[in-house]
Amino acid sequence: MTTYKIFCDESCHLEHDGADVMVLGAIHCTADKAVSLIKHIKWLRHQHNYKPELKWSKLNKHQWPLYRDLVDLLVSDPDVRFKATVVLNKNILDHQQYNAGSHSNFYYKMFYYTLRDFLKEGNDYRIYLDYMDTLGAEKSRKLCDVLQKGTSWQIKVNTTIVQSYEAQLIQLCDLLIGAVAYRNRDDIEHASAIKMQFVEYLEAKLGYALNYGTPPWEQQFNIFRFQPRRSNAE
């Protein structure tokens, strides 16, 4: 049995936050690879004399060399996988008709779509979620239950809530989903030079734009774009 670790984060996930998209993302690798990645990220932070938490909302133009090195680290390693689920036109979601009246039901459905391609029979999965609010423990249990019931395979799934400032790979995930969300949002002015620099550099390294869905078989950096159905009443 191989042990894998999955580090998750989310952007614009609240039902009424004014954003026109929702993005869920996850970094997946073996437990041993996670240890080496964390050590490398800490080394890069030391090399660039960077101490604060890495967050998309706090990108600093003076730290561009660090962001560039982090992108290079991720994209150059075939043993590290990333997936983002982008929910488009979030404002037309009809939870009453399609999700038993619950935004939470929809949220867990999208997280299942985000993580299901990582799951293989006979493996042990340790999933790390960013602490967001006091409902973290309930969210952790629910996601674990959804993933185990979503497949007939024999897999072991454990979820853990952590503080993002203690988790280097959740911070890296935050940067990646921030870039995906930024490129896919039509409701904002894309006026930040450092954010556009990050997005364009990542796209150049990948060889494709972040506002298009990738083929299902793309493993290293997969983007799944979900278009909600409009209400039958419209």
Rank of each mutant, 00 (worst) to 15 (best):
C29T: 15
C173E: 09
L115P: 05
E138H: 13
Y125A: 04
K55I: 09
D32V: 10
N89R: 10
S36G: 01
K156M: 13
M110G: 10
L129I: 14
Y165E: 13
R68Q: 15
W43V: 11
Y131W: 11
E121K: 07
F118H: 06
N60E: 13
G101L: 00
S164P: 08
T160D: 06
H46M: 08
S164I: 07
S164L: 04
V80H: 03
D130W: 06
Y128A: 05
M110L: 12
T160I: 11
Q168F: 01
G122N: 05
Y112L: 05
K61Y: 07
L147P: 13
L70C: 01
A137I: 14
L44K: 08
F82Y: 14
Y131C: 05
L74H: 08
V162D: 09
Y165P: 00
L172A: 11
K33S: 13
C29L: 13
Y128Q: 05
D69K: 08
L172F: 07
D117S: 12
S57T: 15
Q148A: 07
W43D: 15
K109P: 00
G122I: 02
L172R: 00
K156P: 03
S36E: 14
K33I: 14
K42I: 10
F106Q: 08
D79V: 01
T159E: 06
V75K: 02
I41E: 09
L37I: 11
Y67P: 00
Q154T: 13
N105T: 11
K39Y: 08
Y125P: 02
C29W: 04
D124E: 09
V162G: 03
A31E: 15
S76L: 01
W43N: 14
A167P: 00
L73I: 07
E166K: 09
I161Y: 02
Y128D: 06
H62Q: 14
I127P: 02
K109E: 12
E121L: 00
D79G: 12
H62W: 03
T114R: 01
Y112F: 14
K139N: 14
N158K: 13
K42A: 15
Q47Y: 03
M110T: 05
C173K: 01
K33D: 10
N60K: 07
K33Q: 15
V71S: 00
I41V: 15
Y67C: 02
C29I: 08
S76C: 10
V35P: 05
K33Y: 06
S104H: 10
L143I: 07
I161G: 09
Y165A: 08
R45H: 05
Y98I: 02
D94T: 02
L143W: 03
F111E: 08
Y107Q: 05
V80A: 07
N123G: 07
H103Y: 14
A137N: 12
K109L: 07
E138N: 12
R68Y: 03
L169M: 13
P78Q: 11
S102F: 05
Y108S: 08
P52Q: 05
I127N: 01
W153F: 14
L115N: 07
Y113S: 09
H40Y: 08
P78E: 11
P52K: 04
I161W: 03
Y108C: 09
F111I: 00
T159G: 07
N123T: 04
R68T: 08
L37P: 00
Q154Y: 07
L44M: 11
K139D: 10
S104P: 00
A167K: 06
L93I: 15
V35W: 11
A31P: 03
K109W: 05
S140A: 15
K149V: 01
L37N: 01
L119C: 04
N158F: 06
Q97C: 00
L175P: 12
Q97T: 10
